[in-house]
């Protein structure tokens, strides 16, 4: 009986030691620093459409390397709110630009980071983009990303708001927004 109790105590101590080791080891932890995002800048425009870009840095502030498996934008402009423009958005890594919207999985070592470039194209639904932008509203853009590291994979998101006033200013318009 004493032997059995002794074995159980040893097993318990080993389990606690492993748990402490894992807890101390930690995991990757990503953070998109939207407060450090650059202003949207116009990269292309014509009578019916305008294309803007901004940069958002992110870091792995955790204690382990982590894999950013996927990352994409989800813009939110329901036509109930404003139907003057058709929106397309995508993102790419600044260090590995590509225009196909595919995000190649990348390992981000602990305490390091990268920068994504978000591209938003606004196309006037009824002809003139300048008129459409005059009535533009603030538009949330969720940066959605999937992480794989030491623990279970997960998908989470960080919100960036594309402010209508900033778009109007970047486009060189002086018309007020609503």
């Amino acid at each position: 009986m004493e032997l059995l109790i002794g074995l159980l105590v040893i097993a318990g101590l080993i389990a606690v030691a492993i748990w402490l080791y894992i807890a101390n080891q930690g995991d990757a932890e990503f953070e998109f620093q939207v407060n450090q995002a650059t202003a949207f800048e116009v990269v292309d425009s014509n009578e019916t459409a305008i294309t803007l870009k901004c940069k958002v840095p992110f870091v792995n502030k955790g204690t382990q390397d982590g894999t950013m498996m996927d990352c994409y934008t989800r813009h939110l402009l329901p036509y109930e709110q404003y139907d003057g423009v058709i929106v397309n958005s995508r993102l790419e890594l600044e260090s590995a630009p590509r225009s196909d919207g595919y995000f190649e999985a990348i390992i981000i070592p602990k305490k390091t980071g990268q920068t994504i470039v978000i591209t938003v194209q606004l196309t006037a639904r009824h002809g003139d983009i300048r008129q459409a932008l005059a009535q533009m509203v603030d538009m949330p853009i969720d940066i959605v990303y999937q992480v794989v590291a030491r623990s279970d994979w997960y998908i989470t998101k960080t919100r960036l708001v594309m402010k209508a006033a900033d778009v109007v200013r970047a486009a060189g318009l002086v018309t007020g927004t609503r």
Binding site: Y21, Q25, Q64, D65, T67, V148, R150, S151, W153
Partner: peptide, 27 residues
């Protein structure tokens, strides 16, 4: 990874593999 269901052994053992190795992730 989405098609795998990691068990307790994988969750614990991956922690003992250096980070650069393919076995360091639970999947």
């Amino acid at each position: 990874p989405e098609d795998l269901k990691p068990g307790l052994l994988a969750r614990v053992m991956c922690r003992f593999v250096p980070q650069k190795g393919s076995l360091s992730s639970v999947y």
